[in-house]
Simulated scan of single mutants.
Amino acid sequence: MNKIESFHENEPHTANLAGRLNWLRAGVLGANDGIVSVAATVVGVAGVTNSPAPILVAGIAAVVGGAVSMALGEYVSVSSQRDSQRALIEKERRELEEDPETELAELAGLYQAKGLSVTTAAQVALELSAHDALAAHLSVELNINEHDEVNPWQAAYASAAAFTIGAVLPMLAILLPPTELAIPVTFVAVLLALALTGTLSATIGGSSRTVSATRLVIGGALALAATYGIGSALGASGFMQ
């Protein structure tokens, strides 16, 4: 154990805490998407008919379609991020091989810009370069770690799973209660869940929990009211018959 680790053994000095928080935040947002989109779908169908069969079919279609869409979008996004990260790493490695002296001077200059004196910056750059020049440049210049490469498949699975978990709530809320209570129970359950996810997201991000929860609850209520209103209007007009 080194000196830094021995000071506070339980604190994550070497862990990628920011990365973990981003994953957790993404999971909360994915679950929130599942809650809102599937709830809006089943409530809209329930506005047309109170028969469980079409509501179930529409809900399952929304869950599957939404989960696949979330996974695909996350996979494409993270793949692009990974490709960019790899390209930057290879570019920095090539520059270090072709012109190490210029790169050393650049590293020292970056430390000077952070507030170190010329002498200290040069010494720090020299020692870090002797230990791992590539890691030093990637950290200071690009704020990336060569060994913290993002995984698009992991991101896709996590996004799909979070969406599906969030989607379970409105499905159960609309299908389990008696028919006459299904809509109000779904509204209450969804809005409570949104308040919870908003509070959790704000806690992770360090922002106002009240503002975040209120924003999500209002947005969710508008989405449910809009889809239910459209469904009810279509049902009353006889358009779906």
Rank of each mutant, 00 (worst) to 15 (best):
residue 54 P to R: 13
residue 214 T to G: 14
residue 126 L to H: 15
residue 178 P to L: 00
residue 203 T to G: 14
residue 229 G to W: 09
residue 29 L to M: 15
residue 239 F to G: 04
residue 197 T to K: 12
residue 167 A to Q: 08
residue 189 A to M: 12
residue 188 V to F: 15
residue 161 A to Q: 11
residue 28 V to I: 15
residue 152 P to V: 14
residue 26 A to F: 10
residue 150 V to C: 08
residue 130 A to L: 15
residue 94 R to Q: 02
residue 155 A to G: 13
residue 184 P to S: 11
residue 223 A to D: 12
residue 24 L to N: 04
residue 85 Q to F: 09
residue 67 A to M: 07
residue 6 S to H: 10
residue 31 A to D: 10
residue 230 I to G: 02
residue 211 V to Q: 06
residue 196 L to S: 14
residue 177 P to L: 05
residue 231 G to P: 01
residue 57 V to W: 07
residue 60 I to E: 02
residue 144 I to M: 13
residue 207 S to Y: 04
residue 225 A to Q: 03
residue 146 E to F: 10
residue 32 N to K: 04
residue 13 H to G: 02
residue 159 S to M: 02
residue 138 L to T: 03
residue 201 S to E: 07
residue 17 L to D: 00
residue 3 K to R: 12
residue 132 D to T: 08
residue 141 E to F: 11
residue 39 A to F: 03
residue 174 I to P: 03
residue 127 E to C: 06
residue 238 G to P: 05
residue 180 E to T: 02
residue 220 G to W: 06
residue 222 L to M: 11
residue 85 Q to T: 11
residue 33 D to M: 12
residue 76 V to Q: 00
residue 114 K to A: 11
residue 109 G to H: 05
residue 69 S to R: 04
residue 149 E to C: 01
residue 218 I to W: 03
residue 71 A to C: 01
residue 185 V to K: 00
residue 189 A to Y: 05
residue 191 L to I: 13
residue 221 A to M: 11
residue 123 Q to D: 13
residue 9 E to S: 07
residue 119 T to M: 07
residue 204 I to A: 01
residue 43 V to W: 01
residue 150 V to G: 06
residue 235 G to T: 08
residue 170 P to L: 00
residue 58 A to T: 01
residue 241 Q to D: 13
residue 123 Q to I: 14
residue 8 H to N: 09
residue 126 L to F: 13
residue 225 A to S: 14
residue 213 A to E: 08
residue 71 A to I: 00
residue 161 A to G: 08
residue 175 L to N: 05
residue 120 T to E: 10
residue 235 G to S: 06
residue 224 L to Q: 06
residue 165 I to K: 04
residue 124 V to K: 05
residue 19 G to N: 11
residue 217 V to I: 12
residue 55 I to T: 14
residue 179 T to K: 05
residue 213 A to H: 11
residue 220 G to N: 07
residue 32 N to E: 14
residue 76 V to H: 00
residue 162 A to D: 09
residue 131 H to I: 15
residue 22 N to A: 09
residue 97 E to I: 07
residue 147 H to F: 12
residue 42 V to N: 03
residue 17 L to H: 02
residue 72 L to S: 11
residue 73 G to L: 09
residue 78 V to D: 00
residue 165 I to D: 02
residue 113 A to V: 00
residue 31 A to K: 03
residue 167 A to N: 08
residue 196 L to E: 04
residue 67 A to N: 06
residue 180 E to C: 05
residue 68 V to R: 01
residue 86 R to K: 12
residue 182 A to H: 06
residue 210 T to S: 15
residue 232 S to I: 04
residue 159 S to C: 00
residue 68 V to M: 10
residue 158 A to Q: 13
residue 226 A to T: 12
residue 55 I to C: 09
residue 15 A to Q: 06
residue 157 Y to F: 12
residue 205 G to I: 01
residue 226 A to G: 03
residue 89 I to D: 07
residue 142 L to G: 01
residue 160 A to Q: 05
residue 209 R to D: 09
residue 110 L to D: 13
residue 87 A to H: 10
residue 196 L to A: 15
residue 11 E to G: 01
residue 65 G to T: 11
residue 157 Y to G: 05
residue 61 A to D: 03
residue 237 S to Q: 08
residue 213 A to V: 09
residue 125 A to P: 14
residue 131 H to A: 15
residue 49 T to Y: 08
residue 205 G to P: 02
residue 83 D to A: 12
residue 99 D to M: 10
residue 186 T to E: 13
residue 115 G to M: 07
residue 130 A to K: 15
residue 16 N to V: 04
residue 212 S to C: 06
residue 44 G to R: 03
residue 205 G to N: 09
residue 197 T to S: 15
residue 78 V to T: 09
